[in-house]
């Protein structure tokens, strides 16, 4: 006899299961996304040279818009979910958690919506 793999009826994935997996997958994606962003914006371009003209030039390429959309979608959601997990440790009542969850969800939605509007609408360079 050897160790053999057994398959069991796994629990139905709940929000915590999914959010845990999301944190893992998004973290893997964030490694190239965040480092790419940092190297480009802070090292190659430099933060003092980033202005509206630069953003307009960058977003003229659909590739960079997709890159930034991915960064927005994964980095911000990853961070907000991290805050949710930390706050979950300190907020114990169901009501408190519900308020916190909805508050964070709205924060995520509003910031993501503003980012999405900018990404889709683009910016007009200052003439």
């Amino acid at each position: 006899m050897t160790t053999n793999t057994r398959t069991i009826q796994k629990p139905k994935p709940n929000f915590e299961t999914k959010s845990w997996m999301f944190m893992r997958y998004s973290a893997i994606l964030l490694i190239p996304l965040v480092f790419g962003h940092l190297i480009l914006q802070d090292v190659i371009v430099g933060v003092h040279r980033i202005d509206l003209d630069y953003v307009a030039m960058r977003w003229a390429s659909i590739g960079w818009r997709i890159y930034d959309a991915l960064l927005l979608a994964f980095a911000f959601a990853h961070g907000v979910n991290g805050i949710r997990q930390v706050l979950n440790d300190f907020i114990h009542s169901d009501r408190g958690r519900k308020i916190m969850h909805w508050g964070l969800f709205l924060l995520w939605l509003i910031i993501t919506a503003i980012g999405a509007i900018a990404l889709i609408g683009g910016v007009r360079p200052i003439s």
């Binding site: 069991i8 629990p11 709940n14 915590e16 299961t17 959010s19």
Partner: peptide, 22 residues
Amino acid sequence: DSRDTAAAERLEVLNEDSGVWR
């Protein structure tokens, strides 16, 4: 434990909000 048959029940408990995900 290959002889045990209640893994699924235990995992249900551990999958709750206060389970392993904390």
